[in-house]
Design a binder for these strands. Structure first.
Length: 585
RNA sequence: GGCCCCGUAGCUCAGUUGGAUAGAGCACCAGAUUCCUAAUCUGGGGGUCGCAGGUUCGAAUCCUGCCGGGGUCACCA
């Protein structure tokens, strides 16, 4: 139940009445009419700009039109009073009987409260992480991983058909470097002293176990082979092991992809890359040509050469993009084209790419590919995540590119835990930079929003435990309150909580539409705040405490309200991928 | 130089896709616990929304131009 949707219907009906009465013209566009919670509680419970938006096309004065609408709205039984305010706002004060209905609706929907069909089953592919399998995940991957996952949760909760996808590059020259590095570790595992790892290879310790696995499964047989022979074997083995490690790390962060898509599956004779390029070729979107030199400072090694280009400029990109290099090899971008086509062939209508801010330059070309391949039928939506800067007690954590001198995701998880990582990463707009301080995020204070929100949930669970002990409810885990009188929820603080709860659907809807999961995190914080406030009012005014053994009817109603808040907190945290704790000591 | 993102209280950040008197937290000041978890709450001061124009009933939000900060530019992956 979304009361704002409900009152939107009411407002729409009032508009229809005015149309039939001739006050408003036929076919007037109501798209810009907003029915929303007012920022200022003094402006009633629900507010609409309808009169101001419609005044111009109707040739009426906003306030006069508002007056006419108020006459219609005041006839509605859900509305205590509709009044004109300011330049032509209509503020609705809702009948008090609406609030208990909100609580009842939450209890009725339970784990599904807030879930909607707004997405209408539109098929969305969310691609995130997609780190190359040449090493373990590090903090640089973390934000995109969490963001992508929460976005996927959010979209699924909102009625979209979501697939979570990971694209891994197992075809490029970097993977050869990985294999060569692993081969060195393999020789080391067989007892050879390989000395310092040569520059150009990956020196990280994480390849030592890979070498050991190779030694265990191949013995010394690889040493007998030429590089052409062992390279493919070692490459595949190394990629498999790296991907297994990456998946394990992601699992620890509560992230599981549906599809792991291998780049090498795109290549080969008659493969998707060839098909996709032939497709573009057939439509005259590929040509042999030369690119203009880059603007500004000319790179030292720049040379003007003929290559095969995709007409990206026809679709809004700044320059045409190379698909086949002058040496005849495909570019990485060619694989991107084929990969998009794969997604399109799999019937996705929207392809979300979660990328780091350093990939901002890819946005236009990806959108160009989407436009060209799908003919405008599918769209590429790119969400960029800004950099995360690590701190420890206010001091920046230095990370150089030298061996092993970067903080891995594993280390981060082990130190602060998945819930803290996820919530902090999501408690900021994705395109704003984020400072992540190891010490601050694990502090158990109000300053730390993770604990603040989780504590609200735990507090409710604590109330239930106490209520169960007192025999007011049979079981703290299965709070079923079918026969309580929710009209007993009369206190202003209680109503404030209910109003907050009533906004949940609206928040989810807006967050999903904007692809902004952080809105859910901020909402969680606000709801937690409303709960903590009411809790503390019970300290000054004992009659407002959730549990009052002498007033069992009121207690039952308040426990029902707590149960509703708990559902909303749990459902919201579920979207964020954070565990709602039942106890914090 | 071209393109993208950011600029809001002393600090860190929100701002419901254009709404009414711009909001939280931290910090600062003053308070609250014999009582369901004080990991909490209540009150107070604090603003030229980077600057200047434009669009309109109405702009932190949309458009243009500047200023300042970051990212990016390829036959790399």
């Amino acid at each position: 139940m979304d009361i704002f949707e409900h009152f939107r219907d009411v407002v729409t009906a009032a508009i229809a009445n005015l149309v039939s009465r001739g006050t408003l013209p036929q076919g007037i566009d109501t798209a810009r009419v907003a029915v929303e919670p007012p920022r200022d509680p003094g402006h009633g419970d629900v507010t609409t700009n309808a009169a101001m938006v419609l005044a111009k096309p109707a040739g009426a004065k906003p306030r006069e039109l508002a007056e006419a609408m108020c006459v219609e709205l005041n006839a509605q039984e859900d509305i205590v009073i509709a009044e004109v305010a300011g330049p032509g706002f209509i503020n609705l004060t809702v009948d008090p009987s609406v609030w208990p209905k909100v609580v009842a609706a939450v209890l009725n929907d339970g784990d599904d409260y807030g879930r909607s069909t707004a997405g209408q089953g539109v098929s969305i592919n969310v691609e995130y992480v997609s780190a190359n399998p040449t090493g373990p995940l590090h903090v640089g991957h973390c934000r995109g991983a969490v963001f992508g996952d929460a976005l996927a949760n959010l979209l699924a909760f909102s009625g979209y058909d979501v697939v979570r996808e990971y694209y891994f590059n197992d075809a490029g020259s970097q993977v050869d470097v990985l294999a060569k590095s692993a081969f060195l570790r393999y020789r080391e595992a067989l007892g050879e002293d390989v000395g310092e790892i040569p520059s150009g290879l990956y020196p990280g310790d994480y390849l030592i176990p890979v070498g050991q696995v190779l030694a265990d499964s191949y013995g010394s047989s690889l040493l007998e082979m030429s590089e052409d022979e062992w390279l493919p074997l070692v490459r595949r083995e190394s990629v498999d092991l790296m991907m297994a490690a990456i998946r394990a790390d992601l699992k620890s962060l509560n992230i599981e992809h549906d599809v792991f898509f291998s780049e090498s599956a795109l290549h080969g004779p008659g493969g998707p890359v060839e098909t996709a390029l032939a497709d573009l070729q057939a439509r005259g979107l590929v040509y042999e040509g030369r690119l203009p030199p880059p603007k500004g400072q000319l790179p030292e090694d720049w040379e003007d050469r003929e290559q095969t280009l995709f007409k990206a400029t026809e679709f809004g990109d700044d320059v045409d993009r190379t698909v086949i290099k002058s040496d005849g090899a495909y570019t990485y971008f060619a694989a991107d084209v084929a990969y998009f086509k794969s997604k399109y062939d799999r019937k996705f209508q929207e392809m979300v790419y979660v990328l780091g801010a350093d990939h901002g330059g890819y946005v236009k070309r990806l959108q160009a590919v989407a436009e060209a391949i799908s003919g405008g039928q599918a769209k590429a939506v790119v969400r960029l995540c800004q950099l995360v800067k690590l701190f420890r007690g206010g001091e920046p954590v230095r990370m150089s590119k030298r061996a092993g001198d970067f903080v891995t995701l594993r280390e981060l998880i082990n130190e602060v835990g998945p819930d803290v990582i996820r919530f902090i990463m999501l408690f900021r707009k994705n395109d704003a930079p984020l400072d992540f301080d190891f010490e601050k995020v694990t502090e158990q204070t109000r300053e730390n929003p993770v604990f603040y929100v989780q504590y609200a949930h735990a507090r409710i669970c604590s109330v239930f435990r106490n209520a169960a002990e007192m025999g007011l409810i049979p079981d703290s885990e299965h709070v079923t309150l079918t026969n309580c009188d929710l009209n007993l929820l009369q206190d202003g603080g209680e109503i404030a909580i209910i109003k907050r709860i009533a906004e949940f659907s609206r928040v989810i809807h807006g967050a999903a539409a904007a692809h902004e999961p952080h809105r859910v995190a901020f909402y969680m914080y606000e709801l937690a705040s409303a709960l903590h406030a009411q809790w503390n009012r019970g300290k000054e005014l004992p009659q407002l405490r959730f549990i009052d053994e002498k007033e069992t009817d009121v207690t039952a109603a308040r426990l029902a309200l707590c149960r509703a808040v708990r559902y909303v907190l749990a459902n919201g945290l579920g979207i964020l991928g954070v565990v709602p704790l039942k106890e914090m000591r």
